[in-house]
């Protein structure tokens, strides 16, 4: 790990409290511990992604490829959700990309904090997700931010992919997914993903309008289109002129 610039003079000075393990200070080891805990919790729901994905008709290989390569949960669920509802796979992909756009904003916030360059930035980009951002964006130093980002990102990546494989193999062995309510699990998963975001009146209004738009379009469009059209609600509400706050 790179020392933060202001600690450059005292080599290993911050290790004084408890000695270093693998070059990490006591504080940094606490950050790693938290990162691994988040990885375990998040990885666990990779099981449900794996099971839901094969129930939607994807192969185990396709399911694992999504977790390895897309590696951003909401987008992955969206892609298999659209396919499950009979939509064109490519409209599912567009939905996945729209959901993935929030990682761009995370990256903007993380870039000056992590200050990765060159090949390390290219590698780190894959780990820019909800959890790694949350565990690094509030750190005071580049070193602490990098420890939080990497420990969380790598833990989630490893466990998410192992769990996906487990869920996909188990889901294949189950037989008819409806018997086990796996089709209802998809709706439950999306609700759990959106739930923490329903924390303001504007967001709740957007949620209600989006559901109304999507359901209104189901009878008259092909599957996949209603969800994309609901995205227009976000664009509309987000670009409405606002009153200036004092």
């Amino acid at each position: 790990m790179t020392e933060p610039a202001e600690d450059g003079a005292g080599c290993g000075a911050e290790d004084g409290a408890g000695g270093a393990t693998g070059g990490l200070s006591t504080d940094q080891r606490a950050i790693v511990r938290d990162g691994v805990a988040v990885g375990l919790a998040t990885g666990a729901y990779g099981v449900s992604f794996g099971a839901v994905s094969v129930a939607a008709g994807l192969s185990v290989l396709q399911t694992c490829a999504l977790s390895l390569l897309v590696f951003t949960g909401a987008s992955q669920f969206a892609l298999v959700g659209v396919i499950a509802s009979g939509g064109a796979p490519l409209s599912g992909a567009v939905t996945a990309l729209l959901l993935g756009s929030r990682n761009t904003l995370y990256g903007l916030r993380l870039a000056p904090l992590l200050s990765f360059r060159g090949v390390r930035r290219v590698a780190a980009a894959h780990l820019v997700i909800d959890e790694s951002t949350a565990m690094s964006v509030n750190r005071d130093t580049t070193a602490a931010a990098r420890v939080g980002f990497l420990s969380t990102g790598i833990s989630v990546f490893v466990l998410w992919n192992l769990a996906t494989l487990l869920g996909a193999v188990a889901g294949t062995a189950l037989g008819d997914p409806r018997t086990y309510g796996l089709d209802a699990a998809v709706g439950g998963a999306f609700l759990a993903l959106v739930w923490p975001r329903l924390d303001s009146p504007v967001n709740r209004l957007v949620a209600v309008l989006a559901v109304a738009v999507a359901l209104g379009l189901v009878p008259v469009t092909t599957a996949g289109v209603p969800v994309l059209a609901a995205g227009a609600v976000a664009v509309l509400v987000g670009t409405l002129p606002r009153r200036e706050r004092a």
């Binding site: 509802s85 009979g86 939905t95 959901l99 559901v211 359901l215 189901v218 599957a223 609901a230 509400v237």
Partner: peptide, 29 residues
């Protein structure tokens, strides 16, 4: 405006997915 839209997109898309997944069946509700 970009930040607001990006913040609202997941809300709109995920909510719509809840609706379609729970009530949709092909082109019927």
């Amino acid at each position: 405006a970009v930040e607001r839209v990006a913040g609202l997109l997941p809300v709109a898309l995920l909510s719509a997915l809840v609706g379609v997944q729970v009530l949709g069946a092909g082109q019927h509700l």
